[in-house]
Design a protein around this nucleic acid. Sequence first.
DNA 1: CCACTGACGAGTG
DNA 2: GCACTCGCCAGTG
Length: 107
Amino acid sequence: MSATDLSERVRALVARIPRGRVATYGQLAQMAGRPRAARQVGQVLRALDESKRLPWHRVVNSSGRVSRAASRGGGDRLQELRLRAEGVAVDESGRLDLERHLWRPRS
DNA sequence: CCACTGACGAGTG
DNA sequence: GCACTCGCCAGTG
């Protein structure tokens, strides 16, 4: 599988995350068939074109927190605002309840 | 080829 | 929970 395949798979998966739910980088990597490519998932999201309207804000890390590394340009703040706007409680340090909001697709 | 760098994750103290 | 280390792997210089 090539890097572009991973990129396309990840974008397709992100597009399927329902409102009010979140997925983790590692989860998406696994679903894309690359269980250890969580960092690459991050690279894919980093390169997203905002005009594509993908819900990238629904992707958080495995500890249930908004990644602070997304703060380039205040991206982490934007992510928190968008999550709260769709009903996900995110505290001031970027934490949220994974048990309650994790996306659990059937397949 | 090597060194360094991450929107990460698991393990340890 | 926090700080740190280490493994991972594609991208960059």
